[in-house]
Write a protein that binds this DNA or RNA. Structure first.
Lengths: 193, 193
DNA sequence: GTCTATACATGGATAGAC
DNA sequence: GTCTATCCATGTATAGAC
């Protein structure tokens, strides 16, 4: 891994752990093993490096989500697989945590990848739910758009609860509840019988 | 409002807007109109003042929640009233945002009020849901503990989505979805008929 | 109780040698 | 491309006058 790459990866880790305001160029340099001048050679400054880091994290989140959501199984099975996928619960969501960073949200460049990620994810889930409703798998009364928002929110909020409690249990519980509410919307014998 | 009080209120606002790492003693002093020495007379330092501010915000959240949850109406009506209560959506949750602050979470004193708040809120909702299940208002298959966690998580996550999108709409949508999933658990003719 | 002065570390960045 | 030196503002706190 070359220096530029190590800088981005170190920035990603630190943004995840400490957020934008809590992450200094110096800390990034130390973690990456790069010197002062080296970082300013590859990037214009902290915001520039942060943009590279944030963009990559956003891309990664999207790829991982898509992996579950386009996997095998019924619509509900795929969504449940996504909800239950193993996660670094106590570290929180590397993208979602950025919404709490005023310096990120006030910079359109930095904010862009964050906004797009959640817009995409919600749309993706809404499309799946709509598909489930259309094929009779899910109750006709279910609102795909709203429910998609709910599911994404549950995950983001579950991280908050787990971090508050200092234990992944609260996360599991919130997800369990969501899965319970969702599966209650499954019509008993599938759509094509 | 005396100086000490103004310091606490200013600290609360800044912690809400910018988090712990993003809030400097100097900024608190300026917002409160207090001088350097004045702040250090009333508090031992930043963590001490932050503790006062965090404790008060936690207390306030709890009081507001209790106001809705112990209000009039059926269990589901009270929960929906709580979920739909007017909120400063784009500012986020003043307590939940602290879970993203490593310096808060690593200090047991600062973390305490945050942990307690969510533990209390989840328990309170779980008790209500249990009551609804017991009186036949809610489906017997509903898991009160897990669903309580889900509802709290939806609110916390809905803030994240709204901030990411820069609009309260995403918040409303997520809450709508949760209300939809919850009311689908309501047994048709009430418990006592 | 509040003010000013002072202190020392860190944050964020630039300059110029190699 | 990387290193060291340097710069100025800010963060956090203490000391001591009033």
């Amino acid at each position: 891994m070359d220096t530029r790459e190590r800088l981005i990866e170190s920035a990603r880790e630190l943004l995840w752990e400490r957020g934008y305001v809590g992450t200094s160029p110096k800390a990034i340099q130390e973690r990456s093993g790069a010197g002062q001048g080296s970082m300013y050679h590859h990037f214009h400054g902290k915001p520039d490096l942060a943009l590279a880091a944030i963009s990559r994290s956003a891309e990664e989140l999207r790829a991982r989500a898509e992996a579950q959501l386009s996997g095998p199984g019924t619509v509900v099975e795929r969504i449940v697989a996504y909800l239950r996928r193993e996660r670094d619960v106590l570290k929180g969501c590397p993208v979602g945590r950025l919404t709490q960073d005023p310096d990120v949200m006030s910079d359109p460049e930095l904010r862009g990848p964050v906004a797009e990620t959640f817009a995409w994810l919600t749309d993706r889930l809404a499309a799946l739910l709509e598909e489930g409703r259309a094929n009779g798998e899910l109750a006709a009364g279910l609102d795909p758009e709203a429910t998609a928002g709910t599911l994404v929110a549950v995950l983001q909020g579950a991280y908050v609860l787990a971090r508050a409690a200092g234990s992944p249990e609260a996360y599991e519980q919130a997800v369990d509840g969501a899965v319970g509410l969702l599966t209650a919307q499954v019509r008993r014998s599938g759509g094509d019988e």
